[in-house]
Write a protein that binds this DNA or RNA. Structure first.
Lengths: 137, 137
DNA sequence: ACTATCTTTGCAACATTGTTTCATTTGAAT
DNA sequence: ATTCAAATGAAACAATGTTGCAAAGATAGT
């Protein structure tokens, strides 16, 4: 699906900043940091616009924000399959050496039983350690 | 166990800042934010010292740091039972309304199978939603 | 095409969180 | 008491995120 199609599908206006954010994340192998996005967006990049679009795109379900650590935030595109957005919740791996984050799509997040009276909204699972590449160096 | 005993057990020097941090966390019902700690430590409080002691105490396993969100960090004392420190990994609940964090000691974190080559170090589980109190208001 | 309206953007300023460096103070062992 | 490493405080800095407001851009109605 193209960036434009994604925006149309969610009835979000096409703007250069949004288009290139989606492009970038589509071509990324891993969830990207703000810094990486900033580097690649160059002149199109304004911090405030970025944060506002992160907000817009993530409430629409187009991207998701991964908090690996309080100082390590990454952004990734949700998989848009079969014409609608369908991303099962999965765990994320954070390599403490190279600071990269990887989506572990195969690791689904189990349902947790909350104490009575508690309402569930969302669950984040971050597994920390060292990635394959860093282990072989 | 007293704050002093905890420090001695881990061979960490007794200083006023460390003592009162442990006191505070011992008396806290919930994991505390830096702001709450700061309020209560008043003149004993210096930001740099705080961060350094968070580092010292958490690598010693005396406290743990809970990242509920990139802008929401909480600190909690680990349970020190039977004379040694023994805290099974448990999930945490983050109330999106009141921003409180609760340790869900009963929710143990399952073992996840990582892709080959990946080395496991740690796993954080954050469940988001609304807490009992906020649901009844 | 023209205007009115709403959304998005860019900029400036600010707030919060965390780190580094370095001189000084303190803890605790002898 | 002396000593020496460890801990502290202060200043400066860096990164991250937010708010208010004016300008620019897109959209719809006439």
């Amino acid at each position: 699906m193209t960036a434009l199609e994604i925006l149309k599908q969610h009835e979000i206006k096409k703007t250069p900043a949004r288009m290139s954010m989606i492009y970038l994340l589509q071509s990324a192998k891993y969830p990207m940091s703000e810094y990486e996005i900033k580097e690649q967006m160059a002149d199109l990049y304004d911090r405030v616009t970025f944060y506002r679009n992160v907000q817009t795109l993530s409430t629409a379900g187009i991207i998701h924000k991964i908090v690996a650590d309080n100082t390590t935030v990454r952004y990734a595109l949700n998989c848009c399959e079969h014409g609608h957005n369908h991303t099962a919740e999965h765990a994320h791996f954070f390599c403490e050496t190279c600071k990269n984050v990887v989506c572990l799509n195969q690791l689904k997040i189990p349902a947790y039983d909350l104490p009575s009276g508690y309402k569930f909204a969302d669950c984040d699972v971050i597994i920390k350690g060292t990635c394959e590449k860093c282990n072989h160096e």
